[in-house]
Amino acid sequence: MTDVVQITVRSDADIILVRQQARMLAKELGFSSSDLTLIATALSELARNIVEYARQGEIVLSQIRQGSRRGITIIARDRGPGIADIERAMLDGYSTGKGLGLGLPGAKRLMDEFEITSSLGQGTTVKATKWAR
């Protein structure tokens, strides 16, 4: 029984590892297989952003058990450059790189709850939760 797992991400290999861990934790909580894929995809977006823009950071995965409610929370945290304009970063198609600019807004749609905080020069933290149905 694991409640919380924290994983440092710096590379593609770490992203794969994080996704595997998340699938395991979510499966224990009874998430459906399509939800597992949605969670893994959201996580992939957040972890990739960390590797791409902040070089490294941490992903914390926690299982939530509140009464009969089950959920999984992803915290993606880095001390990278931060995001200058969060509102724009959350728009579909906005990318400062060569991406599709769908990672952040996509991750938000994939999860049930989504919060992002960021400050320039300090880093970025995303907290997102998905509840099992």
Binding site: T41, E45, L100, G106
Partner: peptide
């Protein structure tokens, strides 16, 4: 197993 925006791109 997973196709995210980067892989899709």
């Amino acid at each position: 197993p997973v196709v995210d925006s980067r892989v899709a791109n």
